[in-house]
């Protein structure tokens, strides 16, 4: 699967400032291709997360278009786009993201539960093994460490074998061992054919990325790869 952004801009209005309109993302065009891991680097506030949210169908741009295999995702109604996000996109959000009343396994199977679909349990078990959280399947998120929560979040993002995976600072609060484990796993997924986009401000991502892009004040430049 390929995701293509065409001249995407996201503007916000900041009340009480001199210039009350500012662009978090300014005319970005790019393509995320299946089978490659793309790292988006940049300082805090450079627009990385905004770009990820736009590309993953969570935030409609002020102007420009986003296509998934040629289909303009923002022309879809919310129901269709939500379903598409569930089936084709896997998002690892910033910070801790868990539904605390569900167990780890249920959290991972959430994309199936939402649409009352069965299945995914075997793959969930396999993912938990690969990510080293198999023994925590029936545990509630409140009992997990930051690293375990992050790995759970990654497993949930990929449980439906999505064509595109977005990871926002997936190693932000992890130690070196967990950071390597997460990047290895994301690299494997890219190797299996998924388009993977990792937003990070850590240099570790550079080692694993096929392409590296840098964002600065909403603008975008390619540092490595075509």
């Amino acid at each position: 699967m390929n995701v293509t952004a065409e001249n995407v801009t996201k503007e916000y209005i900041r009340p009480g400032r001199g210039t009350n309109r500012f662009a978090a993302v300014n005319g970005v065009s790019l393509t995320l291709e299946g089978g490659s891991l793309c790292a988006v680097m940049g300082r805090s506030g450079s627009g990385k997360t905004t770009l990820l949210n736009i590309l993953s169908g969570l935030l409609s741009p002020t102007s420009g278009k986003v296509f998934l295999d040629g289909r303009d995702i923002y022309s879809l109604d919310d129901k269709t786009l939500s379903r598409l996000r569930c089936e084709s996109f896997g998002v690892v959000p910033q910070g801790q993201s868990a539904v605390r009343t569900l167990t780890v396994e249920e959290n991972i199977l959430l994309p199936f539960m939402l649409y009352k679909e069965k299945g995914g349990r075997e793959y969930a078990l396999e993912l938990m093994k690969r990510l080293g959280i198999a023994e925590l399947a029936s545990v509630k998120p409140s009992e997990l460490s930051g690293g375990e929560l992050r790995r759970m979040s990654i497993a949930r993002a990929v449980i439906r074998r999505p064509g595109v995976i977005f990871a926002d600072e997936p190693t932000g609060d992890l130690d070196d061992e967990n950071t390597a484990l997460v990047f290895d796993f994301l690299k494997q997924l890219a190797g299996e054919g998924s388009a993977v986009m990792v937003v990070s401000h850590e240099n570790d991502a550079l080692k694993y990325a096929d392409r590296v892009m840098k964002m600065s004040a909403g603008n975008f430049e390619i540092m490595k790869g075509a």
Partner: peptide, 16 residues
């Protein structure tokens, strides 16, 4: 709020 955001990320529509 954050749990609802997680549901949205994983594919829940606004109606859901």
């Amino acid at each position: 709020k954050k749990e609802f955001a997680v549901l949205r990320i994983t594919g829940a529509s606004r109606k859901m």
